[in-house]
Design a protein around this nucleic acid. Structure first.
Lengths: 120, 120
DNA sequence: GGTCGATATGATGAATCCATCAAATCATCA
DNA sequence: TGATGATTTGATGGATTCATCATATCGACC
């Protein structure tokens, strides 16, 4: 039984439905060479190796990323340009959501956003 | 403890991570008056009432829709314009995904797409 | 072949999601 | 007030996801 279009879309969104995986995809989206090694992702996320690896496996399963082993290192990149498009729109959607939220919550989230920028 | 930006985004994607909920959001996105009653959604999805209602509750929880009771009927609409944006990009992403899939699977999914258009 | 660094997979328990059926709630009307 | 249509919520069991720790696999090098 082949999946319906909605089921394929739902799978794509499932891949995006976890904060760590969003973070990883954003790092890949923003990376200058368009890809990052697992080691670099580990450094930038501060995660434990097997934790990140399990999430990367989910991203591979749902075809949001592609991987490429070169020697002992594995590089990941977004599988499709429109994955980046989803990230961009989600950013715009979040801004829209935040515009309608309490100003104290907004201030707090803006602080976190500044901190994230600084870390990068 | 307030949620991080990634957590808020993850919640939005969780709301999208089920085929029925995608279908509902697309129906709302495409509806001429920009909203539909639960009754209309029931008719168009063919779901059982409490099944749909549980999914609508998830969409409300993650703030992807807004509801509005008028008499005995409840109307739903997308909570933000960018929810529609996410749907549009996911459509483009799916097309991108399908371009790289086997042609027999592609043909099958295109048939389903045609059938869906016809039903509407 | 063995060691080591890099990465992936397996096992497990807790939490969450999903589908289904039952019951409750809300609004309207006689 | 009770009945009815519309909709929501609750309860429950099974499936899936998540986090964590342990183990396995891969590639490079001696």
């Amino acid at each position: 039984m082949r999946p319906s279009l909605s089921e394929v879309k739902a799978d794509l969104f499932k891949g995006l439905a976890h904060p760590v995986r969003i973070r990883v995809l954003e790092l890949l989206h923003d990376a200058e060479p368009g890809e990052l090694s697992v080691g670099e992702l580990l450094a930038q996320t501060g995660l434990e190796a097997s934790h990140l690896s399990q999430h990367l496996a989910v991203l591979r399963r749902y075809r949001l990323v592609e991987s490429d082993r070169r020697g002992s290192q594995v590089y990941y990149r977004l599988a499709y340009a429109n994955v980046g498009g989803l990230l961009d729109v989600s950013r715009a959607l979040l801004a829209e959501v935040l515009e309608t939220t309490h100003s104290d919550a907004t201030a707090h989230l803006e602080e976190q956003q500044e901190a994230a920028r600084w870390v990068r």
